[in-house]
């Protein structure tokens, strides 16, 4: 459902001349599965997900989402994904219902489907009591629920979550994770980025560990742990990152480029 081929992204930068935010990333995600992108801050997770949601264009490589190419048919891609990040804002001067209605209409839903969809989502996420309150008066947790509802209103087959629990308290974060699990069980194709190991462990069927724009390792949790001598994902993660850093340093001293470690 999601096929990513050799995706690269470079940004111009004042200090270093150019930043390689993403370097030859490739992976696939199937329907009914949660694919985790696990990596520290600045690893390239957000860049990757922004490219998949067509906000950014890749420097090279491409990806197909539900059969649509992100470069050739960005509109088609946007119509088939729901995107949610920890930093997405809401319009303060709109109510929860208006927000969701607005995006539903932009997705081309007719009024019957729209109100049915809103009723269902608002009930599932128990949002009815604040449905007509202005977003500016909502708590952080409520706002994130509005964002989730906004991402789900057009019932997309693919969902992209970019650190959706950032800044949320434990209770709300748990509710978000539960929602993601429910969506997976409904057969959605989900890609979920996080820097929190426990979230990845709990939620993801398969994971990719990403660092400095490259995928260091990928596979199911069991595959990853079997490949390493570590018993726990976090230790494995640290191992990979430190191996990578030493490798980089050696290569820098011999002045040759590192070869990228491939994903699945």
């Amino acid at each position: 459902m999601i096929e990513v081929h050799d995706l690269s992204k470079r940004f111009p930068d004042l200090q270093q001349g150019e930043i390689v935010a993403l370097d030859g990333v490739r992976f696939t995600v199937d329907p009914g599965e949660v694919f985790g992108l696990l990596g520290p801050n600045g690893a390239g997770k957000t860049t990757c997900l922004r490219i998949l949601s067509t906000i950014l264009t890749p420097t090279s490589g491409t990806a197909r989402i539900d059969g649509r190419d992100i470069v050739d048919d960005p509109d088609g891609v946007r119509a088939r994904i729901g995107f949610l990040s920890g930093s997405t804002g809401l319009y303060d001067r709109m109510t929860a219902r208006e927000t969701v209605e607005y995006f539903g209409r932009l997705y081309g839903l007719d009024e019957d489907r729209l109100s049915a969809s809103i009723d269902r989502i608002f009930t599932t996420l128990s949002m009815n009591e604040f449905a007509d309150t202005l977003n500016s008066r909502l708590s952080t947790g409520m706002r994130q629920k509005v964002s989730i509802a906004r991402a789900l209103v057009h019932d997309p087959p693919v969902l992209i979550f970019d650190e959706p629990t950032t800044g949320l308290d434990v209770l709300v974060a748990r509710a978000v994770l539960d929602t993601v699990a429910t969506l997976r069980d409904e057969g959605k194709c989900i890609i979920y980025s996080t820097h929190i190991m426990r979230e990845a462990e709990r939620l993801c069927d398969r994971l990719a560990i990403i660092h400095r724009g490259r995928i260091l390792a990928a596979g199911s949790q069991r595959d990853l742990l079997e490949a390493s001598e570590q018993s726990d994902l976090e230790e494995h993660f640290f191992d990979l990152v430190s191996q990578f850093e030493t490798h980089e340093k050696q290569h820098a001293s011999t002045k040759s480029g590192p070869d990228s470690e491939a994903g699945p």
Partner: peptide, 14 residues
């Protein structure tokens, strides 16, 4: 500034 630009850009509107 309010972070809604990203939300708007992922909507299907060109």
């Amino acid at each position: 500034e309010r972070g809604t630009m990203e939300t708007l850009l992922i909507s299907p509107a060109k």
